[in-house]
Computed example of a mutant assay.
Amino acid sequence: MSTIKGSTPKTTIKKILLWVLLLAITSYITSCIFISKQKSIAFEAINIGDTQGVVIGRLGMPSHVEKPSTLFTRYASHHCQHPCVERLWFENRLSFDIEAWSVELDEGGRVVKKAYWASP
């Protein structure tokens, strides 16, 4: 087995593992930031009155669909209220804290309210 000059095989393996760990952490953080920025840009492009199809086209499939009878307690403390008949949730699941975007739809499937949720 070939080693780096002045290092033992154990030292070489430790260095490789350290680099792999650093690369994994950097990739995770970069991915989290990328998702957050992409979702935020798409969220800002959504307007009141847009259809559910436009919302899904911009933000992708929702992480959760909340109906008025079932509160999504991970983020919300109150049900969506009339004219809202369902709330679509789009989460950044890589985030260490809470980060999500919600879009409320009326019975015609049009946006009536949208919100950004993040922990302090």
Rank of each mutant, 00 (worst) to 15 (best):
residue 48 I to W: 02
residue 93 R to I: 08
residue 25 I to K: 05
residue 38 Q to H: 07
residue 20 V to T: 12
residue 111 V to F: 08
residue 101 W to G: 04
residue 94 L to F: 09
residue 57 G to D: 06
residue 49 G to R: 03
residue 14 K to L: 10
residue 85 V to C: 07
residue 37 K to Y: 09
residue 47 N to G: 00
residue 120 P to R: 08
residue 2 S to Q: 10
residue 43 F to E: 03
residue 57 G to Y: 05
residue 9 P to H: 02
residue 69 S to Y: 03
residue 73 T to P: 04
residue 79 H to W: 01
residue 5 K to E: 15
residue 32 C to W: 04
residue 70 T to M: 13
residue 8 T to L: 04
residue 103 V to R: 02
residue 63 S to V: 04
residue 101 W to Q: 12
residue 82 H to D: 13
residue 12 T to P: 00
residue 23 L to E: 01
residue 47 N to A: 10
residue 79 H to I: 10
residue 19 W to M: 07
residue 106 D to S: 13
residue 70 T to L: 08
residue 97 D to S: 11
residue 118 A to P: 05
residue 27 S to M: 12
residue 14 K to H: 06
residue 105 L to F: 09
residue 9 P to E: 04
residue 106 D to I: 05
residue 60 G to V: 06
residue 44 E to N: 15
residue 3 T to I: 02
residue 57 G to I: 07
residue 15 K to E: 10
residue 12 T to E: 12
residue 94 L to K: 14
residue 33 I to G: 01
residue 96 F to E: 06
residue 64 H to T: 03
residue 85 V to G: 02
residue 28 Y to T: 06
residue 22 L to C: 12
residue 17 L to F: 08
residue 87 R to W: 05
residue 35 I to S: 04
residue 94 L to E: 03
residue 90 F to Y: 15
residue 32 C to M: 11
residue 65 V to A: 04
residue 69 S to A: 15
residue 30 T to P: 00
residue 100 A to N: 10
residue 104 E to K: 14
residue 63 S to T: 15
residue 54 V to H: 03
residue 36 S to K: 13
residue 109 G to P: 07
residue 37 K to T: 07
residue 116 Y to N: 12
residue 65 V to I: 15
residue 23 L to W: 06
residue 100 A to F: 08
residue 43 F to H: 14
residue 100 A to K: 08
residue 29 I to F: 09
residue 94 L to W: 04
residue 44 E to H: 14
residue 119 S to M: 08
residue 107 E to R: 13
residue 75 Y to D: 02
